[in-house]
């Protein structure tokens, strides 16, 4: 056989082998064999990363939610237990005191939950870092001299021109602290405050409530403002319009009542 006849002889190879050699794409298969496992590994890694990240986020949310629930429960307990003893509520942190007074009661509607703050217009100046504690619902308090003096600026004198002795009682109504000043006069002791409060409430859309109760001897006036957290943020921050914490000190008046005063809580 001559050399070049071998090439001719190869023509007689089984056609199936020729067809197979023509159709196969080994490079593509080789690439797929390399790329597919790599892509699979990458997908698994990304999946694990996503799961870990999601798990971490959900854990953080759960922890935050749990912390919120614990805080709400503590506040509710503090508000409930506080009615038994005024002195037992002493605390150094004003933020905690504010929360314990103004946080909504669990089980409220969504609208009621927004109403977290009460704003009173009894003027005083901030005093922080003291041992005061929030006024306890149902308690009877005497006003501090500065608070009384601030009230007198609004002409809160009795019909004889004498300084009125105020007694403040506090009620808790649907999570909102209600300050009830008690006076012997027939007129609301803070006429300017009332006017200003009505104007402000109308502008801001704040729910307010003035009430007067006369028992034949004394007239009881009350002002209650329900201010949502959002309204509170947009509310002008000033000593006049800021929100106040009514706090009770450990001092007692001549009748043995804790002396109440107000602490301003605001940005200024």
């Amino acid at each position: 056989m001559r050399k070049n006849e071998l090439l001719n002889a190869m023509e007689g190879i089984v056609p199936e082998l020729i067809t197979e050699a023509e159709r196969e794409k080994p490079a593509l298969k080789r690439i797929l064999r390399t790329v597919v496992p790599a892509a699979a590994c990458l997908c698994v890694a990304l999946g694990i990363f996503a799961v870990v990240k999601l798990h971490t986020k959900s854990s953080e949310n759960a922890a935050a939610q749990q912390a919120g629930e614990i805080q709400t429960m503590q506040e509710a307990n503090a508000a409930t237990n506080g009615s038994n003893s005024v002195d037992a509520q002493a605390t150094d942190n004003i933020e905690d005191e504010r929360s314990s007074v103004f946080e909504p009661i669990a089980g409220e509607t969504d609208e009621a939950k927004d109403m977290k703050r009460v704003r009173t217009f009894i003027t005083d100046y901030p005093r922080r870092g003291s041992t005061e504690h929030p006024l306890i619902p149902g308690g009877q308090y005497a006003l501090s001299p500065t608070l009384r003096a601030a009230m007198n600026e609004y002409g809160a004198l009795d019909e004889y021109g004498n300084e009125i002795t105020y007694i403040v009682s506090v009620e808790l109504y649907e999570g909102v602290c209600q300050l009830v000043p008690v006076t012997a006069g027939e007129h609301f002791p803070f006429p300017n405050v009332e006017e200003e409060a009505v104007r402000l409430c109308n502008e801001e859309g704040i729910i307010y409530e003035f009430s007067r109760y006369y028992d034949g001897e004394n007239t009881t006036w009350s002002l209650r403002l329900d201010i949502t957290a959002k309204q509170l943020e947009s509310f002008p921050a000033s000593p006049r319009y800021g929100y106040w914490l009514m706090l009770a000190s450990e001092e007692l008046d001549d009748y043995g009542r804790p002396i109440a005063h107000a602490v301003f809580e605001g940005d200024n």
Partner: peptide, 18 residues
């Protein structure tokens, strides 16, 4: 001869045959 070559190639791996 062509048949013998076919037998030889059939015994090889697919890659070598290709």
């Amino acid at each position: 001869l062509a048949a013998s070559i076919s037998v030889f190639l059939s015994a090889c791996t697919k890659e070598k045959r290709g």
